[in-house]
Design a protein around this nucleic acid. Structure first.
Lengths: 125, 125
DNA sequence: CAGTTAATTAACTGATAGGAAAACTACGCG
DNA sequence: CGCGTAGTTTTCCTATCAGTTAATTAACTG
């Protein structure tokens, strides 16, 4: 019953990772954390968002395994955990041959498709 | 003409790309398209989803620039455009030093944070 | 021309996302 | 002890997502 290729669990994890990354505030938070751990108020500072909003973003990042949180007194220091990003990179790299092929093989073909789409219809009704 | 800072437009594009990728059906469609172009019914075949649902997924992928669509008679052939995936890969690769550092430097530290969280232990730095 | 096939649009539903404001919890300190 | 600081939870809003069925558009086929 062990998985053959891509296990469903891994797919789910990718769903969650990509969803977490699909927000520029959250990506900015991750970027900030490369410079070292930070607590919630520090992370919130650059944004025009309420603290609860940041708190939610952090929860999303935590559930996606992209950050880890500790507890020191009343502070909750956040630290980056880039492990899921390795999976993202690996996933995207699968397509490297495709985007590299684009320049030699598919470039003209894609243009062609786009053209067909544009000039496709003559009369609007 | 663009300034040095990461342009907002690029950020928006990443938002859209990641959002498009945050769904296993859509990722499966992309995977399928590495084997060559396909029309909508062919793409729908492996899934237990209605055709309109697939159509919507394709629209999301198209808006994210991940596929291009043509028109041949009543068929709409879809082709992969992996260019946005190169951006994803580049973005993720920024974090490679971080996930590689994990094994030497941060591993124990993260464990520590997780432990603090679980045991609610109070400690000084 | 009517009919079939391919795909999209429309209309609707339930669930989730992102946000704000207000209330609450937890801790440290004078 | 009560107060201030740090952060989360709750409540509420609107918007978007993922899916359905039914209707519609578009193009070929006999």
């Amino acid at each position: 019953m062990s998985a053959g290729t891509t296990s469903a669990a891994k797919e789910d994890r990718l769903d969650e990772t990509f969803a977490a990354l699909a927000n520029s505030t959250r990506r900015a938070i991750l970027a900030r954390l490369t410079e070292g751990e930070a607590n919630v108020n520090q992370l919130a500072e650059p944004f025009e968002l309420s603290l609860p909003a940041i708190s939610k973003h952090l929860k999303v990042l935590e559930r996606a395994g992209l950050i880890v949180r500790g507890q020191r007194a009343q502070f909750r220091p956040c630290a980056l955990d880039a492990a899921p990003l390795e999976e993202v990179s690996t996933w995207a790299e699968q397509y490297r041959p495709v985007w590299e092929a684009r320049f030699e093989r598919m470039d003209t073909y894609l243009q062609q498709l786009r053209q067909q789409r544009k000039t496709g219809h003559d009369d609007e009704r």
